[in-house]
Design a binder for these strands. Sequence first.
DNA 1: CAGGTTAGTGACAGCGACTGCCAATTGACA
DNA 2: TGTCAATTGGCAGTCGCTGTCACTAACCTG
Lengths: 211, 211
Amino acid sequence: METLRERKKRHTRESLLRAALELFTTKGYEQTTIDEIAEAVDVSQRTFFRYFAGKEDVAFAVQRMTEAAFVEAVRARPAHEAPMKALRQAFLEGWDTIRGTVESVVPVELYLRMYRTIDATPALLAAHLRRSAAAEEALARVLAEREGVDADTDPRPRLTVAVFGGVIRVTERQWCTSDDLSVESIRTLTATYLDQVGSALTGNWRGTPGR
Amino acid sequence: METLRERKKRHTRESLLRAALELFTTKGYEQTTIDEIAEAVDVSQRTFFRYFAGKEDVAFAVQRMTEAAFVEAVRARPAHEAPMKALRQAFLEGWDTIRGTVESVVPVELYLRMYRTIDATPALLAAHLRRSAAAEEALARVLAEREGVDADTDPRPRLTVAVFGGVIRVTERQWCTSDDLSVESIRTLTATYLDQVGSALTGNWRGTPGR
DNA sequence: CAGGTTAGTGACAGCGACTGCCAATTGACA
DNA sequence: TGTCAATTGGCAGTCGCTGTCACTAACCTG
């Protein structure tokens, strides 16, 4: 069980997190100062930095949770599944269980709105892409292990994950700029785009559709 | 022709650029202050900011040139070439002509060393990935136009460019961590990895090679 | 080539993110 | 209840970056 001190700490941390995301999504990331976040929770600026490494850190606190869940989901996929299929299934699964992963800390709706803010803020978009790259490295290792190849010398796990990640980013971007910011929306968009990769790579697009 | 004022400006700018890259690659990006760069060229800190928007801006000044050259090279490719092929050829071409593109401003060797610094510095890596994403958007539009599809509704140009970009980033990363930091090295590595994408995506790796 | 115009510069003040340090407070536990 | 350790606030300082203003050097015109 939890001591009073621990309860207070958790409360402060979560209050800071919620206040930060609320401010970021409403008045913008750059326009929000650390002092404002701290003031909203009635702690000193110094205390904010004891809970989060910086402005960027608090912005991605929730993303960190969902990312970790995704990597674990890939690891948990049945061993006979082909790499690309495992990535795809784990990812869609991640969106199915997003409520349970996130809601204990912040409302899912706030989490989803944050995606838009990230996409619209150059500094955050950059950080997001770097975080994605780091995640891809972890995923490549998982795939390499699943398939019994050497992650350091065989480029195929990394290439596969890079292609998958590329599609995911196209999907995210499209979703962020659409007006339907719902979980179902990104789920179906992801599935659709993953299906289209094959035909996109063959070239010769002139005959057919644009979704 | 060039007036005295313009000559002085160009000289100041290029001196700042060279000094910055030299400092970044030797003592590290984070460890280098703007004051040091300005001092090395004997101008005020304020003057530095009149030539470059910030620390990040000067770090990518040369990359900006090569990127622009790459996008143009894709645009200049024969219209009958398949999208993926056009990207590949333009990219390899870019490395063939890198000397002519860069050497007038900084030594190629310094430009290449800068890649390692970018890869090793989280803040720069993030910025690099965001810049790549922006470049991919431009490339997608070029491909869409070449193939006569609508860049806004048809996902295939963006998907193709995302896959290509993904492979390029895997390649860059591998190259940066290798000990052969030469133009030939990244050229051949790129070609090899692009060739492997197809077989990587089919799954079923157990039979064959790791490069 | 004298004199006014303009571009480029340096110095200074100030903001926001972030860190180190020390003193005060508050919960934990004997 | 008193002691100890964890948590906090305040303060000073660094670095990236911006606005302002006066000053100088280059340009141009007569």
